[in-house]
Nucleic acid binder design. Sequence first.
DNA 1: TAAATAATTTAGATTCGCCTAAATTTTATT
DNA 2: AATAAAATTTAGGCGAATCTAAATTATTTA
Lengths: 220, 220
Amino acid sequence: MTEQLSTAEENYIKSIYHLQQAESIVSTNEVAARLNTKAASVTDMLKRLNNKHVINYEKYKGVSLSVEGEKIAIDIIRKHRLWEYFLVEKLQFKWDEVHEIAEELEHITSKQLIERLDNFLGYPKFDPHGDPIPDSKGHIQFQEQISLIDLTIDQPATVSAVVGSQSSELLELLTHKNIGIGTRIVVKRKFSFDNSLEIETNDNSKFTISKELAMALFVK
Amino acid sequence: MTEQLSTAEENYIKSIYHLQQAESIVSTNEVAARLNTKAASVTDMLKRLNNKHVINYEKYKGVSLSVEGEKIAIDIIRKHRLWEYFLVEKLQFKWDEVHEIAEELEHITSKQLIERLDNFLGYPKFDPHGDPIPDSKGHIQFQEQISLIDLTIDQPATVSAVVGSQSSELLELLTHKNIGIGTRIVVKRKFSFDNSLEIETNDNSKFTISKELAMALFVK
DNA sequence: TAAATAATTTAGATTCGCCTAAATTTTATT
DNA sequence: AATAAAATTTAGGCGAATCTAAATTATTTA
């Protein structure tokens, strides 16, 4: 289909994909900020990617992925998230240690490799951060994720993502409270004074968490 | 210690290492042939690597690895062979399918990753082709390997390498006879007429193999 | 050993991916 | 709407890694 892309090209495509989640048209400066590079370098690359038909780009008009480009982006994301899953589940890395390594592994080209890895891992649907892993056809299982703060009382749910998962302070708190991706939670009471929640988890323990923490936890 | 090396630089170092197994001083043309590149490109790179002190190089005098360079080479080979082991043992690849993929994986930089992978795999000593895997300190367990054709009668041994393992004809024959790396073999008789051998394997089957096959099998 | 041949290096280009500085276009503000 | 500010692109350059063609050095052979 498409010829081999360089690592740099793949990183641009991935960035544009992620930026497009917020707004369908992405600016040169946004891409530059995300990739820690200069706007002039981005313009250069956009011209090249445009020639390869993986993006739609017009001078001064911003950029978006073509259908082809979106396929490529999803494929890279699939690889990234499968490797993250592997690193956490098989090699015992913590979920906040795997991103950098997966950034490298996601550029390994073998199609066979990723299919077999997927099989070896048991076709996981979500990565260690709770983000969905696209399947081999590029289908992404989108899911309603709501903040724990908005969860109905007595409605069981599973922690599927943590916003700001890069913060070690947050990680410390979660470790202490024994909460992670996959933890089952039921909200038992809501205290309107400070918006804190009384919750019950997996291990039958019942305790209160702050508004701040509840807002950082997403469940499905 | 040393700054980050590019993939290209690492590949040059690895090539020089392997070529040095045959002769301690390696020529520009030998490197060029091994890397499918031109002699002029090699000269360029040798100058660069020389400046980084990972090789010993003098114009027209050939090249050899410095102590530092050899460490780097062994580290890359360790990564390559561990990944090959992973691909065969965990992802069910055949041993003749993994080289290319490992060529990419060997350049992933994380030290932690490779140590954890090693642990996950159970600290294997030999890769699927029977080549030794250097340990985390760079020690390589060298082993006497002899051709099966030279093995003493009634002396049990284990298949540790196959020469010409890239040939699919050979692979076909080995699959049919159910012989692979790790197969235990005892030579029961030698027939001087055609130098064929009667052997007994793991699974208690007894059969004859040709001189050609015996010469391709190495045991320890 | 002198000439022929082979190996290696140098010179000069090219592409990729990046940079800075200057020019241009778009957007926001008065 | 005119001008100021912000965003973007162009121009020109640089280092890495490669190439071809020409020059140089080493080796082989007659």
